[in-house]
Structures are given as structure tokens and as C-alpha cells.
Design a binder for these strands. Structure first.
Lengths: 234, 234
DNA sequence: CGCCTGCAAGGTGTATACACTTTGCAGGCG
DNA sequence: CGCCTGCAAAGTGTATACACCTTGCAGGCG
């Protein structure tokens, strides 16, 4: 099950980690099929461990699992995508509010070092850049001393890469490094209002870059639309 | 796996639901052992389905599962308990902010009816009252149109009953109905500031009632304390 | 009497087997 | 030619078997 204290990771832990990374890196894309036995063969284990891993990913909403049907990588519809960004704004704004003026020198240094690392990354649209951008947000959230907040932000971050995969182009620079720098600056000079605003602005541009049309949310549910033209069954 | 659209619930779904309710109702209390085969016998199913149910409960942090050891009902330490309430304040304050002045007449009526139901409940310290109190918060969260927010609040609500079981007395009135009424009133007259404040105050008293001493958080981690007196290994 | 050792019982990790469900396709029928 | 039918292939749901880990206790040893 969820590996506890540094004990040997179980097989399902390893498969969980592998699948998770593959999904976040967009090697597996939304809608891709995840048959238990195929995955099992591929890792040299039985379906049992694969099932456990898939169940865990399902709990994190990274895979969809319908009864008696093959599991697939989750593909958030536009409404869900908006909910995810909405929630990120809510939580990460809170992160900014709580961190402003309360960071130790060491923490500020860690953040600045990370931003420098992001700047130095040669290919700005690479998978590595995408990873680093996510890490920045995770790092920040982790500095608030609340593991639940950390977990929620982390979950939303992973799901964000599904959205990027669906609605953005490949690894289009999901985060502008300059915006990260602005957030760190506001935080370290203790300007809570500016920090919150920088975070909100940043998440706004991230969402815009993923080009989810507001219309999409209304038009997406094919079933609901067609239902209006069909007679009710049951 | 997580039952999708109205398909027959699988065995693990049923066991999941049963265990979950037993935990929330405090029939199973924090620290209680949950051996897979015993539970399986009790429900007439094999360990397979039980494992799936336990994994799901573990993902929601209602049970703790250490490798090769029997799973137990989660018992949040004081620090964790504070994190949970902290997070509830954060999220439910957001709920209040978003709902103020935006409730339809029907929604207000639903809420008022629920509060009336709470008032009419004869035994104020019963399991039923506790359930209704939780439902009030769930109801509120559900009215914000964001399923992620709804899910997070719901998860925190369940975990709160673990805290009550550990640090409060049995089903001590976890929520004062009058405070619920005050929240509804502020929301329906569109006073966001008052609504947020009423919610904060309410959660403050809920936390106080559960009598988690602040000291507890500092003193709890036996390991950390003893570590200072021991030589480092590894 | 107390501590350590080792063993048995309790429990989990994982593979495998089999029944049942879903799906895609081939072939017949209009 | 297109639609429907039915069957085979693919895949999941669940039980069972067995190896291994963990724990508590009994009995020996100091």
C-alpha cells in the first residue's frame, strides 16, 4: 500500500511511481488505455500489483476507471479543467498569503536558486522545464507548514499536466520564469498583497496559455446536448 | 474501483462504504485493527475486495497502512489535527465568501430546512446529530460549483470525526446549531464579511470543543524528543 | 528474577485461476 | 449496400494458494 517509512517500496509502489511519472511527463497521454495485464507484462509482475497502482492513481484522479472496462489516463473535460485552475488559485493564493514575510533567509535562497535553475534550462519547452516549473509550485507549497495543503497542491499540479497535454501544445512553457521570480521577490520583501497578486496573475497566464475556451465548458458534453433532441428512455 | 455511473456497486465498493460509515460513526475508533481476512469473513468476501476497500480508505487518510502490518483506523496526532482544522478554515471560509449573496431562494430554503432539522433532533449528542452537523457543511460546500472543493471539504469532514473521537468526548455536540443558523443568515443577506467571520468563528469553537491542547502538538512526537538524547545511527 | 532467543500463529504481498462482461468484427439477412 | 446478430478476443472482478514478514510468548540461560 502507500509506502510508509522508508520500507522497501512494494511492487505496486514502483508501478505507481512509474505510471505516475509517465503520465505527468505526458509519455502517456489523456485517453490512453491502461490494460492491467499489458502493464503487468511490461513490468514483469502480475495484475494484482498493477491493480493496486491503478487504484491509487484513480484516487488521485490521474486515471479514470469504469467498471469492467479498461482504465484510461484521465482526460479532464473543460469544466473540470476550470475547476482545477480555480482550486489552484484558491490554494496557491493562500500559500502566498501565508508565506509573505515569513520566509527564512535559507528558504528565500532555496527559492532563488530554483528560479536560477529554471532560467538556466536551455530548452524552455522541454519536459525538464515543465518539471522544474511544477517543482517551483510544490516547493512553495511545502514551505507552508501544512502537509494537507502540500498534498492538495501537489495533486492539482499533476492534474494540471493532463490539462496541458489536452489543451495546450506539448510542453509549451507552462510557467514564465519571470513570473516565478516576481513571486519570490514579493514574498521575500514581505509584501503579502503583491505576492498574492503575483500568484494570481501567474496562474491566470498559465491558464490562458492552456487555451481552454470558456465556450468549451458549455459545448463539451455531447451527451447532454444530444439528450435534448432525443426522447427520454428508461 | 470507484463506482462510476450508477453501475452495480462492486463488492469492494460495498465494503468501502460500510467501513467508511463505521469509522465516521465512531463504531470503529482510531487505532482499531483492520485485518483483511477478519473483515473478509465478516462480509463473506475474500481478502481481495477488502484490500481494495482499505486502499481507498488509505488514500482518504481514514486508515493507516504500514507495510506488512495490519491496517488500523487512522489516529491523527495533534499536529495533524491542527492541520485538518487549519485547512477546513481555509476552504470553508472560501465557501462562505463565494456563496454570500449568490444563493438562490431554493438553496436558502434547503439550508434553512436542514438547520430546522438539526434543531428538531431530540438527542443533541447522538450520532445522528453529529451526522447532520457534518451534512450541513457538506451541503454548503456542494453549493459552490466546484467538485474538487466539495471533495476536499468532504474528506476533511470525515477526518474531523476521527479527531472528535480522539480528543473530544464521544459525540459531544460538534457543531452548535445556532452557529449554523448565523452562517445561513449572513449568506442569504449577502454579507460576505459576516458570513466569512461566522464560519471562522464556528470552526474556531468546533476546534476548541475538541480540546486539542496546543502543547500536545509540541510534546507529542516521542521519537523526536528521544532522538535528542540518543546518538545518531545509520 | 529478568533478559534474551527462537518458534508458532497471525497477517500481509503477490501470483494464478476462472467466471463474467464488454467490444469489435465477421458473416448473414433484408 | 447497410444493418443486425452472434461469436471470439480482450479485459476485468474475485477467490484462492503460497511465500514471507512480524509479533507475541514460552522456555532457557545468566
Amino acid at each position: 500500500m502507500g509506502r510508509a517509512r522508508a520500507g522497501k517500496p512494494s511492487r505496486s509502489d514502483k508501478i505507481y511511481a512509474a505510471l505516475r511519472q509517465a503520465i505527468v511527463e505526458q509519455a502517456l497521454r489523456p485517453g490512453d488505455r491502461l490494460p492491467e495485464d499489458a502493464i503487468g507484462d511490461c513490468f514483469g509482475v502480475s495484475r494484482t500489483s498493477v491493480r493496486a497502482a491503478l487504484a491509487r492513481l484513480h484516487a488521485e484522479r490521474l486515471v479514470e476507471a469504469r467498471r469492467n472496462r479498461v482504465a484510461i489516463v484521465a482526460s479532464p473535460d473543460p469544466t473540470e479543467a476550470q475547476e482545477i485552475f480555480d482550486m489552484r488559485r484558491c490554494l496557491e493564493q493562500e500559500v502566498a498569503r501565508r508565506l509573505a514575510g515569513r520566509l527564512t533567509a535559507a528558504q528565500v535562497e532555496t527559492l532563488e536558486q530554483h528560479v536560477r535553475l529554471e532560467e538556466q534550462t536551455s530548452m524552455p519547452d522541454s519536459q525538464a522545464a515543465s518539471q522544474l516549473a511544477g517543482d517551483f509550485h510544490r516547493l512553495l507549497a511545502g514551505m507552508v507548514n501544512n502537509r494537507i495543503l502540500t498534498r492538495y497542491v501537489s495533486e492539482l499540479l499533476s492534474r494540471s499536466s493532463l490539462i496541458l497535454a489536452l489543451y495546450g501544445q506539448a510542453h509549451s512553457t507552462d510557467c514564465a520564469v519571470s513570473e516565478h521570480r516576481a513571486i519570490v521577490a514579493a514574498l521575500s520583501r514581505g509584501d503579502a498583497a503583491a505576492a498574492v497578486q503575483a500568484m494570481q496573475h501567474h496562474l491566470g497566464t498559465v491558464e490562458k496559455r492552456s487555451s481552454i475556451k470558456e465556450d468549451d465548458a458549455r459545448n463539451y458534453d455531447v451527451g447532454a446536448i444530444l439528450k435534448r433532441y432525443a426522447v427520454k428512455e428508461t
